[in-house]
Design a protein around this nucleic acid. Sequence first.
DNA 1: CCTCTATCGTGAAACGTTTAGCTCTATATT
DNA 2: AATATAGAGCTAAACGTTTCACGATAGAGG
Lengths: 340, 340
Amino acid sequence: MVLIASTIKDVAKYTGLSIATISKYINGGNVREENKKLIDEAIKALDFRVNEIARGLKTNKTATIGVLIPSLENIFLTSIVSRVESILLQYGYSTIICDYRQNKELENQKFDFLMNKFVDGIILVPLGINEDKIKMALEKDVPVILIDRSIKGIDCDVVLVDNLNAAYNAVELLFTKGHRRVGIICGPQDIYTAQERLKGYIRVHEDYQIKIDDALVKYGDYEIQSGMELMNYFLEMENPPTAVFVTNYEMTLGAVMALNSRNISIPNEMSLIGFDNIQLANVVKPKLSIVVQPMQQIGEFAANLLLKRMKGDKSGYPAMLRLKTDIVEGESIKVINSFI
Amino acid sequence: MVLIASTIKDVAKYTGLSIATISKYINGGNVREENKKLIDEAIKALDFRVNEIARGLKTNKTATIGVLIPSLENIFLTSIVSRVESILLQYGYSTIICDYRQNKELENQKFDFLMNKFVDGIILVPLGINEDKIKMALEKDVPVILIDRSIKGIDCDVVLVDNLNAAYNAVELLFTKGHRRVGIICGPQDIYTAQERLKGYIRVHEDYQIKIDDALVKYGDYEIQSGMELMNYFLEMENPPTAVFVTNYEMTLGAVMALNSRNISIPNEMSLIGFDNIQLANVVKPKLSIVVQPMQQIGEFAANLLLKRMKGDKSGYPAMLRLKTDIVEGESIKVINSFI
DNA sequence: CCTCTATCGTGAAACGTTTAGCTCTATATT
DNA sequence: AATATAGAGCTAAACGTTTCACGATAGAGG
């Protein structure tokens, strides 16, 4: 039983060649055919594998990239990450996934951790990252790709969806079915996506020349509980909206729970358009209409952009990839008045 | 702008002390008070941080543990992982999370990857891991903790839930409400949890002296689609069950979708008890009754056991921690005949 | 036969740490 | 006063690679 891993030195000894030659071969250099065979044999016999730690020490490359997200329990994010991971693997990169639990301090800490691990690149869903850290990384030639959210005032590659028009389209759909009093359950306004989604809500009202009733614009925190509370708030208004647009998955969950617990019928008594999770949409009765984001695509774009940057290709920097969302229609929107 | 990170050598130069002294101080050795101050100052001035790669090369410790799971898009797993990660962080450990996409080959590959990264310990949800790999890891003094599933015939610490009695209790609940024809949608029988859950179903039938109708025992693959198909199968039987026990989250989703799409009323026309996701349970109308696993606890137990092993404490090896599940009752089970 | 070039191989330094073993000094013990 | 002990610091080797600069060999071209 080989307890101590064999090193390049052992391979050298076994073959009678020098360490330098073995290293050259491993890294794709020219070696006589005869010696290639010999080295292969030795590697097999000794079960040799490169010590990545030692290699990393010399090369400052680790063939590892870091992914830093606010929560592991968010299926929207983990879907993206899963795709990223699978693409990078094809190019020989491994992935370290970190979760900063919506905690800005932890986010900064873990960013440092990744840099300390000498990852070759970082994919980040930012919340309160210290901009200097990103600059520092880029200066050290560690590319950083932001996903889902951008940070104003900083040049950085970013892959996200067109949240503004996602919201625009969702609310527009309600308008075309005759709704005029449309409530919105927003996210926290220090989060980029939440700002954009609110902007879309506002713009579509402008374009349709419908005045916004401020009482219909409520701010949640992207968690289930607030979705529930704010839907309850709407239901208790003297003049409630006829439809509500909920701007993320968790709050959509909460909103549905609120409706269910009060036995409000969807869409007869309240129309609803939600966000992000097609499985959720299908399991609710009647099926929910929702905005879906192209998670797979976000992952692919981010991974490919990162690969490009790691190759040293800085063209088009900073890139801003803005993908389009879709609406999957269920039966959660009542047709009050169709113009079509 | 410091582009090249400063090393221990720079700190030595700055302070006039030797490298060895700096290293000693960093690692908690004795140094004169006066020099401590000096070194601290130097570290701050030079923004020095230990190069973990170099340290790892010397010590063969990386203060990093690996987590290997079949899917990142499984909230049950990511909840556990999130907890594990947060506990280990408190002890200075960082976590590399890998996803093997339900692919046994990838699982083995990534296990190797983690070993290559010289993680100090591994937490694994096994599917088709090569047992030799686990033995090899243990021999190299890298503790391995299995979670959710054990592997027969191999000595290894494991943290899981009592799946057998989880199923037993779920079906028993149906029995106490008067159901006698209870269908089960099982998982793939090469997965440990699926076997155990089926065993529970069988045992409770024995204990209640109810004969099992083989037509009521169907095997899915733990994915949404098969939950849907198998529920449809039950609904189309000439003599359908009055209640169905679905043995994981995804298939529960599918089963609910099938019921909804056929407009079957829960629980009047079909009773249901599902698995694993309390949010799902609350969003379905009427609320679903489900078996819930103690994700947080699993995470805690696994993390603490791993910490213990990494300290070298081998007491009680191999440990088998078998946690209990709960049933959260909704309104998805019709009372046919109550004996209470 | 000489020179040039290309190919293959090597020795040795370097990456940034840790650590064994040593020296030196100051204090405590007898 | 002599000796033991403990504390603080240092030198140098080691971890397992990569890579630079060079040497050796052999065939080609003149």
